[in-house]
C-alpha cells in the first residue's frame, strides 16, 4: 500500500444550495479531474456536515444525490467537520478496505443565525439554556488568553492583517474581539481525493506523513501542547484571531512558518479545506512539508492535525 496521499482537492466559492447537491456536483468533478480519476474509480466516500446548519434532520442524506450512487457505493458520514471524514477514509485505506476515497464536506452556514445556533453545542443542562452566542463565548476565551499573557490585541490585529483586514481599530463586536477578529460565517463545500500509495502512480500527490486528533473537556481552559513537526506552511482552522495564536503556541510552530490565511468560516467544510489547501502547497511545490489543521466544537475543543509532505 505504501502510504496514503492527497491527489485532488476542490472547493466551492460563494453560495451553497440548501441540499448541497447542486454545489457538490461541480466540486466533485473538479476534485476528480485533478486526481485523474472518474467517479466509479472511488472505493469509499465519506462526508461531514451538521443537521443544525440547515435546521433539518438527516440533511446529509440528500447530499448523497450528488454522488450518483447507482449502483450502490461504500459510504459513511460524520456529524463533524469533514476533516474527520478524511480521517475515517484514511483509516479505510490504511486497513486495506479501500485504495481510493473521496471525502467531502458542505454547509449552508448562512441559512440560519449560526452565532446563536452554536449555543446548542454547549452543555444542554447548565449552559445552552442561557443561549450564549458563539462570538461572546469566544470573547471570554480571548480575554483569558490576553490576561494570561498568551496573546495581545496587537497580536490579534496582526493576524487579522494577514487575513486581509487593514483596519486595526475596527469596532468591538464582543470585547475584546473586534470585527476583524471574527472570520465571517460563509457557505462552503469542499472535496479531497485520497489514494493508497500504489494508486498514486505518478500523479501530483501530497503524502500524509502524520494525522492525529484529540478531544478536550468542554471548557475555557488552555489548550494542551500538541507538538507538530517542522513545517514550511501551516493552514490553521481558527474562526477567531486569538485562536490562531493559541494554536500556533500549542503546535509549537516556529517563526519561519508561512501561514495560509483563514478568511471565511465555512463550517463543516472549512477544516477539510485547510487540509486541501495545505496539500495544494505541497503539490504545487511551494512547500516540502505543510500542516493542515481542523477544529470542531466550541473554543477549539477538538483538533485534528494532518502533516503533508512531498516524496522526491
Amino acid at each position: 500500500m505504501n502510504g496514503v496521499a492527497v491527489i485532488g482537492f476542490a472547493q466551492a466559492g460563494g453560495v451553497v444550495t440548501t441540499s448541497g447537491v447542486e454545489t457538490l456536483v461541480p466540486v466533485f468533478e473538479e476534485a476528480l479531474a485533478r486526481a485523474g480519476l472518474g467517479r466509479r474509480d472511488i472505493d469509499f466516500w465519506c462526508s461531514g456536515s451538521s443537521d443544525y446548519l440547515a435546521g433539518r434532520a438527516f440533511s446529509f442524506v440528500s447530499a448523497v444525490d450528488a454522488i450518483g450512487a447507482v449502483p450502490p457505493i461504500a459510504e459513511s458520514h460524520v456529524e463533524m467537520d469533514a476533516a474527520w471524514a478524511l480521517y475515517e477514509a484514511y483509516l479505510k485505506i490504511l486497513s486495506g478496505e479501500a485504495s481510493t476515497a473521496l471525502v467531502y464536506g458542505f454547509g449552508k452556514g448562512t441559512a440560519g443565525d449560526l452565532n446563536r445556533v452554536l449555543a446548542l453545542q454547549m452543555d444542554p443542562y447548565t449552559v445552552a439554556p442561557l443561549w450564549p452566542d458563539a462570538i461572546s463565548v469566544a470573547a471570554l476565551q480571548a480575554r483569558l488568553a490576553i490576561d494570561a499573557g498568551r496573546c495581545s490585541e496587537d497580536d490579534m490585529a496582526a493576524v487579522a492583517a494577514q487575513r486581509g483586514h487593514q483596519a486595526p481599530d475596527s469596532p468591538y463586536v464582543s470585547m475584546p474581539l473586534r470585527e476583524h477578529d471574527v472570520a465571517p460565517v460563509a457557505d462552503g463545500a469542499a472535496a479531497v481525493v485520497l489514494a493508497a500509495g500504489d494508486r498514486v502512480a505518478g500523479r501530483r500527490a501530497a503524502w500524509i506523513e502524520r494525522i492525529e486528533h484529540r478531544i478536550e473537556a468542554q471548557g475555557f481552559g488552555e489548550l494542551p501542547a500538541m507538538p507538530a513537526p517542522e513545517v514550511d506552511v501551516a493552514a490553521l482552522h481558527a474562526p477567531f484571531t486569538h485562536q490562531e495564536l493559541l494554536l500556533r503556541r500549542a503546535f509549537g510552530l516556529s517563526g519561519g512558518v508561512r501561514y495560509v490565511p483563514f478568511t471565511e468560516n465555512a463550517m463543516f467544510s472549512a477544516g477539510l479545506s485547510r487540509i486541501g489547501v495545505a496539500a495544494e502547497e505541497v503539490m504545487a511545490g511551494r512547500a516540502a512539508k505543510a500542516l493542515g489543521h481542523a477544529t470542531s466544537g466550541p473554543l477549539l475543543q477538538q483538533n485534528l492535525t494532518c502533516v503533508l509532505g512531498s516524496r522526491s
Partner: peptide, 18 residues
C-alpha cells in the same frame, strides 16, 4: 447517534466527552 434534533443538542459528543 441519529439526528441531533432528537435531543436538541448539536453534536452531543462534545459535552459528553468527559
Amino acid at each position: 447517534k441519529a439526528p441531533d434534533l432528537f435531543e436538541g443538542v448539536m453534536m452531543p459528543e462534545l459535552f459528553l466527552a468527559q
